[in-house]
Design a protein around this nucleic acid. Structure first.
Lengths: 328, 328
DNA sequence: AGCTGGTGCTGGAACGTTCCAGCACGTCCA
DNA sequence: TGGACGTGCTGGAACGTTCCAGCACCAGCT
């Protein structure tokens, strides 16, 4: 079932058939409709490979997620947002295996790349950025030299400030922050924002480094340690959402009541924050919409309807829950 | 940088270059090496589209995950297992948007399909199975008519029986099961296994239906209801792992101590089970390896090294944790 | 009548690869 | 000496699409 079959059945040349179905060229309205009818009836499906070859574009984009974070439901939601949006523009989304670089090989397989939360110490990232196709990053890449064609960023400084304001309003005077090292834009922004907020409010904050995709066990140990070392500790902001249950466990262990004795919040909303008890206040990065936004930007870049180098903002929201009910 | 460039640089015809790089045809060892050197030096990358067109195979497989389950970290792990394994065979993995059928269009985009946990009430599944390419399902498809080319299944009956034996051994006499409706092989098998075990052991079990990807809130409501209706209830098996925190919350609410007063377990291990407190005993389906196994089977099917219709078993393990410490 | 310009359509070339028939050459055996 | 056969290589065709130059035709103007 090729274009030629359709053309023959409709009694026109393949060029006309191509024009009629592709919407290009000069075809009279009547023949266009006739050809479309024939194509539909015959169940014609354009051959992707032939089209790619001729157009020298693959109709697919790649999605690269952080090595360490592939287990998080946050990225799952983001991925499916991106898939959906890509589909709307007729683009396939191919999932790239984390860790395995293969920079150059990609160029012939995808038209563009989505690189989410690029970490400074991920050796694949520079390869991806230099793969020779447009790249949109989710959050900025902090490395030097290479610049992506576009980026979608969250105002992590503002969201953390809002979260800290909320905690202060609920009575927190000695908050702590569990946050990954400054290898990602997200974590670096959180660190800077904590510093700024702390100075501005005159409230001392203890900042503790945890892995990018910290486990509950790691967060529990860190929190226990924090509680032991800071008797007045009254709030813990745990940046990675997956680790939140560990913070709660440490609170229980220390005899602190979450929500009143110890306020707890996360910088990413997800299953862990929503499902724990009590439910945990978190910054909702709206992962699926984030994925959609990244895919949309890349799609526009590919279509030439967006300026290379553009940076777009993505909105967040604060989901207040029981874990920050307020100090009594 | 095409094959012809390489051929010219090596002073041979494109056919010889193709044979040398592809490992086919008759080429002397010396020229083969020379051509490979030239190709490497020039950084030659075969054009995927041209190859696909000529070979009429795309070098990519599709992955379809259940509509409702895309948020679960279980599927994230599975997906990345599959990606990795596919990559090892040079196959790209394209993520299919759930819900949107597009059966026929797929045939030209992928060589084969991975359909994971196909649900009876998902209208896309029959389209996918009938897309005209080999399909491997993760767990069986319970619908009539269409048969996949292969399947990788878990012995869910055995794992649930083992889990229930474990609970009984730890003192449970009135266990309950929260399980999705029988629209998926997994849930149907769990239901049947619960029934069999209950008869064999002479222990009455209450089975309660919850959504396939139940939320903690749904599980909490169900558990609270169960506790209210069954004063002697001493164990809850929550099939979907994401819902586990809800069960724990309900236990706390009812004044039951998880692990001693109420034993809790899940039929899928994941972040929720590992991260809650206390940590929850669960059947580890080893998602990443499961994904690998599915991709491996499809790959073999495509290569013709596996018999169409083959069904492979995938091993599970029981991770015992504090939530089933034992009734005092 | 001849020129201009627009419209609807066509045929051929090109994209980069793989596959196939076949050629030149050498070796072995009758 | 000459057929049969194996080896190493080549050129052309094919895969299905899109793009481009160009042809025939008609209407409007000079």
């Amino acid at each position: 079932m090729t274009l030629i079959d359709v053309a023959r059945a409709a009694g026109v040349s393949k060029s006309t058939a191509s024009n009629a179905l592709g919407g290009s060229g000069r075809v009279s309205e009547s023949t266009r409709e006739r050809i479309q009818d024939v194509a539909r009836e015959l169940g014609y499906r354009p051959n992707t490979a032939a089209r790619s070859l001729r157009r020298s574009s693959t109709g697919a984009i790649g999605l690269y997620l952080p090595r360490t974070g592939t287990r998080l439901d946050y990225y799952m939601n983001l991925a499916f947002g991106a898939v959906e949006r890509a589909r709307e523009d007729g683009l396939d989304l191919v999932l790239l295996a984390p860790g395995t670089a293969s920079g150059g090989a990609l160029a012939s397989r995808v038209d563009g790349l989505l690189v989410i939360d690029p970490e400074l110490d991920d050796p694949s990232v520079p390869d991806l950025l230099g793969a020779g196709v447009p790249v949109v990053t989710g959050e900025r890449y902090l490395g030097a030299g290479v610049t992506p064609s576009g980026a979608v960023v969250c105002d992590n400084a503002a969201s953390l400030a809002a979260l800290l304001d909320h905690l202060a309003e609920r009575g927190a005077r000695r908050p702590a922050l569990l946050v990954p090292g400054p290898g990602s834009d997200w974590a670096a922004a959180l660190r800077a924002a904590a510093d700024t907020w702390s100075r501005r409010e005159g409230i001392e904050m203890v900042v503790r480094t945890v892995p990018f995709a910290a486990t509950p066990a790691e967060a529990e140990a860190a929190t226990a340690d924090l509680i032991a070392g800071n008797p007045n500790l009254d709030a813990v902001v745990c940046a990675p959402d997956g680790a939140v249950p560990g913070v709660l466990a440490a609170a229980v262990q220390a005899g602190l009541r979450t929500g009143t004795g110890l306020l707890v919040a996360a910088c990413v909303d997800g299953a862990a924050a929503r499902g724990s008890s009590p439910r945990v206040t978190a910054v909702d990065l709206r992962a699926a919409e984030y994925g959609r936004a990244c895919a949309a930007l890349l799609s526009e870049l590919l279509a030439g309807t967006a300026e290379p180098g553009v940076v777009r903002r993505h909105d967040w929201a604060l989901n207040v829950r029981d874990s920050t009910a307020g100090r009594s």
